[in-house]
Design a protein around this nucleic acid. Structure first.
Lengths: 160, 160
DNA sequence: TATTGTTATACTCTATAACTATA
DNA sequence: TATAGTTATAGAGTATAACAATA
């Protein structure tokens, strides 16, 4: 593997990783009656505590309508409740139920176990190399995203 | 970063990579009027040549119904056509149009450029470390998926 | 009988726009 | 007037089941 094509092969591997990880997570979440999007909302509640739907929409990068749907589903299945906001009668505070909290904690434990399963067999030097490369790739990716966003807004996304 | 938590931090980074890459690809494909699923179907056609919908469904790991929908969308937008199967009048051969072929080739070129953008700045030793770690993680992930599938079919998924 | 692909139906995630109740 | 969240509507991906045409 010499020359430029090693970059392509590496990207192919990264994309394979994306697919495998996504499938694996989807399957694991389905066992608890969750989807990726609903788990994401639960994760935000763990991080932020009881939150308005507006705050969740901003945190998750989705529309208010989407949060309404996700909250409906999580409420029906017993993961969250809508509580009265103490000072704003327009707003609801989405709040984890005991069950929601318990599942969230279990998911965190499972993720810890999973990370161990993935990395524990890797020699320390190689692990460090992997993490170093990952840092680089993430940084590049964020730069490229920022450039793309800037280009999009300059072209006619923001000046229309 | 010592102890077990370095594994968790690494997994967090990998998951961040998954999100960034997925978003980036979604945005890039949208510029050509494609979604991930439709691009996946196009990619299978590039690999396999004109194919029946049944073959595509098996290759993509989705239902026949899903391929009908994806093919409908790609046909309406001019990426593929349904051609007569020479020997089986039940089946259609999904076939790339000239436009579909051209877009597929462009996507491949863009992916090559993208891989260069991601990795070219990485010192060779660190790149090799990254790829080595990636190999390990992919292998572990495949083992774990196989185990999960075996456990599922033993529990009552296959013996019902 | 078995298979290919469709129609019928349903669920999830996503979005924009109009609207209600409140700030 | 502006904001929070809903309803209305729509499009995409996904699935199962029933059905048509053909093997």
């Amino acid at each position: 593997m010499t020359g430029e094509s090693r970059f392509e092969a590496a990207l192919d591997q990264v994309l394979a990783l994306v697919v495998l990880l996504s499938d694996d997570m989807t399957r694991a979440l389905a066992r608890d009656g969750l989807t990726s999007s609903r788990a994401h909302l639960i994760w935000e509640l763990v991080q932020r505590g009881p939150s308005t739907q507006r705050a969740l929409a901003d945190a998750m990068g989705v529309s208010a309508r989407t949060v309404t749907g996700l909250t409906d589903g999580l409420e029906e299945t017993g993961f969250v409740t809508r509580e009265k906001h103490p000072s704003d009668r327009r707003a609801a505070l989405v709040t984890l139920t005991a069950h929601g909290q318990a599942i969230a904690e279990r998911l965190q434990r499972e993720q810890r176990t999973f990370s161990h399963d993935l990395f524990a067999g890797l020699p320390r030097a190689q692990f460090d190399g992997f993490v170093g490369g990952l840092d680089h790739v993430l940084a590049r990716l964020r730069e490229l995203s920022a450039q793309a966003a800037a280009a999009a807004s300059a072209t006619g996304d923001g000046d229309a």
